[in-house]
């Protein structure tokens, strides 16, 4: 059975890179005694794939990985087991069974939402709250991109699906962007951007372009970025409908009589 796991990553553990997060989960699967499937061959490894690598230093409220299981106990039970053996800052928040035909996590990624805060003293000088609509009104936003073959110009405007100012909370709401004056809270920016393998847009790149359009340069390590969620397109290319990756799956019913192997004693002293 294919199982999709959603987790959060926050706090000091944001300094752990993507490959090490994979290693972390490989070990966590064994500690939690998840009945995960292995590849065949002389050096078998767990069947596990991640949706979209998260850069070092970023936090996330919506990371995804898919695993293949021989048997499952139940969404809640598997989540509890994983969280019991996890480290502070990595928290599983949903476990869902995927339909047989579901595409793998990485291939189905279409977009990602990010909240961006400026570190103290590193916010732009210009009034970025009022300037944002002007930036988004542009038909083309050209940035230079370094590729293997050299530097080329790309238009990032089509990849920006939504972008607005957040005043109150971490969660984007329609009201937040309607209020443009009289707000004293630290204004963050929310953006929903292309995260597909063909057109992946880095949030920092978008902010850089926004600042450049207003004659400013982004200061070193100025941004605190949280990935809010990763989305797949369940509509068509012409009329896309983006839903979080775990909406594809369904809850696994709990099986209380599943022969649990969690009985190994914790007593570590002899």
């Amino acid at each position: 059975m294919k199982v999709r796991i959603k987790f959060k990553k926050y706090g000091p553990i944001r300094f752990i890179g993507h490959l090490d997060v994979m290693r972390f989960f490989q070990k966590a699967m064994r500690r939690a005694e998840i009945d995960i499937a292995y590849t065949t061959g002389f050096s078998p490894h767990q069947i596990m794939s991640f949706a979209a690598p998260l850069g070092v230093g970023l936090e996330s409220n919506g990371e995804y990985m898919d695993i293949e299981c021989h048997s499952v106990t139940g969404s809640q039970d598997m989540m509890n087991r994983l969280n019991r053996v996890s480290a502070p800052g990595i928290e599983v928040i949903s476990v869902k069974a995927l339909p047989e035909h579901a595409g793998n996590a990485m291939a189905s990624v279409a977009a990602a939402g990010y909240t961006i805060r400026f570190r103290e003293g590193r916010a732009p000088e210009f009034d970025y709250i009022t300037k944002l609509p002007e930036f988004l009104a542009k038909e083309h936003i050209m940035v230079t991109k370094e590729t293997k073959t050299g530097v080329k110009e790309v238009d990032i405007r089509p990849g920006i699906y939504e972008m607005y100012i957040l005043f109150q909370s971490n969660k984007p709401t329609a009201q937040d962007c309607a209020v443009t004056s009289g707000c004293t809270a630290t204004p963050s920016i929310y953006m929903l951007v292309d995260a597909s393998s063909a057109g992946n847009l880095k949030p920092g790149k978008v902010i850089e372009a926004f600042l450049a359009a207003n004659g400013e340069e982004l200061k070193e390590n100025a941004l605190l970025i949280t990935r809010e969620d990763v989305y797949t397109n369940v509509g068509t290319e012409q009329s896309p409908k983006l839903v979080p990756l775990d909406e594809i799956g369904s809850d696994i019913p709990e099986t209380p009589d599943f022969p649990s192997q969690m009985s190994v004693s914790d007593a570590s002293k002899v």
Partner: peptide
Amino acid sequence: MTVEKPARYIGGEV
């Protein structure tokens, strides 16, 4: 964010 392998210095391991 500057140093190589920041995980060397943050602790918090399982």
